[in-house]
Design a protein around this nucleic acid. Structure first.
Lengths: 338, 338
DNA sequence: ATGGTTAATGTTATCGATGCCATTGGCTTG
DNA sequence: CAAGCCAATGGCATCGATAACATTAACCAT
């Protein structure tokens, strides 16, 4: 199992392999890179030498010479949320499948200097491309301001082409569901205004509602946390006639339901609640939360796909449909007949 | 803001800087690395040249020459759970503070080949050290089987020295709390048996209970998901006399409470429930979940600290106390007097 | 002044892989 | 059989930073 290079304390190089196989370093290099025109006999000798020595190419040397790394930088703020996490998982797996590795850098703040620092790091590490997972307006602005020749994917829409993002399809599905249940006066509990995913969910929700003849009566800006949901519940005015609320993520939805319960407002009898993310806990809160189950993993795949296409200057592979799904549970019900 | 190197299409090198400043490349290199003995006048000339050219050291070249990278590999399975996520955050910030960057690699499976693949990647990237975040027995075995000269931190206890891990102190605190409430017959809802953190939480919980004269009547093995909690609720035998259950994470605790509610078993009147992780949602489920709030961030810091000490062969910095805290909420109450 | 120190800086070779060009040998073609 | 051609392989320079060693300058003591 362990390669027989215990005698030398330095890892084997192309030259070691070459001299062992009786060929030149160049031939070894070619074989490693998958060059076809090598005589079978030679090929085999080199192959064995590689195995015997446990040779692995030195990435630093290769990068120095070729200037092409096979690393992709992923810039993400709240990487530990369900959504970004799944995006990353999809992205990592897609990258790996194409021989790239994903370099995840989490930033704590969304201020310019944090962002710049992360991008600087990517430049120093000479990543082949950058995938910006978290999307706020500031981030987008900072990224676009830097003129760099590293390919960057900033906008999920960019990568999905004509296909709606999870936010778009999710917002629409939430609206359709609530419309079908007869709700006509609704509220929206959003993430911070400068977060694009929140805006996406909101816009598609609004548009679909308007098309169905319903009205958005109130909108509360949140910060993705359950606390924000609880505050919204306090701010909620029962006389507004709102019978359903769409929250931009489950955490806020859960906080919201908790706050409503404290005020004696029954879910779903008086107010229906729809969340977004379908976190595992959503099915186990009381009442069980109706939620949009987004396919973030495919969204991440799409993004990397588009990014790689740009890096390697080839047309993007056929796009996978992200396909969100609405999971209907106990937190939504027919609109109370006023 | 943008450095004036637009005219040349290649990024500036030490030589470019050197010739611009009228010194040798070596001097530039020394300055960049923070060498002290450079005459102020020279230093300033070089400094300006660096800024004017927007020079950044080429990491690949440096790594090739020095064989010392400033990257740390972090191997993690379920990176998107709250716990590992916070460990990573702490680890990343500690690493950054010491001039290292954290290379997070998530693996999907816990089988030998996934692990090996990830470790191979680390070796090829010549990371300075490896931090194994997720800890199962298999992982530990695979890691220890590979003889590699890269420093590795596998065991959190290793990095914390004499200080109890969050799992140890958390399990103990849960036990003390329940003992104080008069509970004497208890259950434990664990993670998979081969996960060390689960075992830690369990052991410290058990030990403290025994010391307090209580008995562990039942133990359910779970898989960290709320579903596992729900199954445990089904398996729960009301005639067992169990009045309190400690779940190894909040997700399972939430599933458990949901399952108990379905069976009409009241929490905390009949059964108290304590979780672990204190996820943001914990405070907003009904009843609000009493949970151990672990200081994973500091645990991550400690680990990186210990790792860096080993890498740089210096004594570890004073250790930060992880300090878990028990957040008491509505899911725990006095034991019902039988 | 002369040798001896030390501080500041310069020279050269090297890390490992690979792009570019040169070479070799076998085979086809007229 | 010579000319021509292609397939397979080798030689050399290079990517950018730095370790190791060499040099210069400046200053001191004798």
């Amino acid at each position: 199992m362990v390669p027989d290079n215990a005698h030398s304390d330095r890892p084997a190089t192309v030259h070691d392999v070459a001299s062992r196989a009786g060929v030149s370093a160049q031939t070894v290099s070619r074989l490693v890179k998958g060059y076809e025109g090598i005589r079978p006999a030679t090929r085999e000798r080199v192959q064995t030498a590689i195995e015997e020595l446990g040779y692995r190419p030195n990435r630093a040397a290769r990068l120095l010479r070729t200037r092409r790394s096979n690393r992709i930088g992923a810039l993400v703020h709240n990487m530990f949320e369900r959504g970004p996490g799944q995006l990353l998982r999809g992205a990592a797996s897609e990258a790996r499948a194409s021989g790239y590795s994903l370099n995840i850098v989490g930033i704590d703040g969304l201020d310019e200097s944090s962002i710049d620092e992360a991008l600087d790091l990517f430049e120093e590490e000479q990543v082949a491309g950058i995938f910006v997972v978290t999307l706020t307006e500031e981030l987008r602005a900072v990224v676009q301001r830097r003129s760099s020749d590293i390919p960057i994917i900033v906008d999920p829409a960019e990568s999905a082409g004509p296909i709606p993002t999870t936010g778009e399809s999710g917002g629409r599905m939430a609206a359709q569901h609530l419309l079908a249940l007869g709700h006509r006066r609704l509220g929206f509990l959003g993430g911070p205004r400068e977060w694009l995913p929140s805006e996406q969910r909101k816009e598609s929700f609004f548009i679909e509602l308007l098309r169905g003849g319903a009205t958005v009566v109130a909108e509360w800006p949140g910060d993705w946390t359950p606390e924000a949901g609880a505050s919204a519940a306090q701010a909620f005015d029962p006389r507004s006639g709102i019978t359903a609320i769409f929250a931009a993520n489950d955490a806020m939805a859960i906080g919201l339901m908790h706050g409503l319960a404290l005020r004696g407002i029954r879910v779903p009898a008086e107010v229906s609640v729809v969340g977004f993310d379908d976190i595992p806990e959503a099915a186990y809160v009381i009442p069980e939360l109706t939620s949009v189950h987004p396919n973030f993993e495919d969204e991440g795949r799409n993004a990397i796909n588009a990014l790689l296409a740009r890096i390697e200057q080839r047309p993007p592979s056929p796009i996978i449909h992200p396909g969100s799904e609405l999971i209907v549970r106990g937190s939504t019900g027919p609109a109370p007949s006023a």
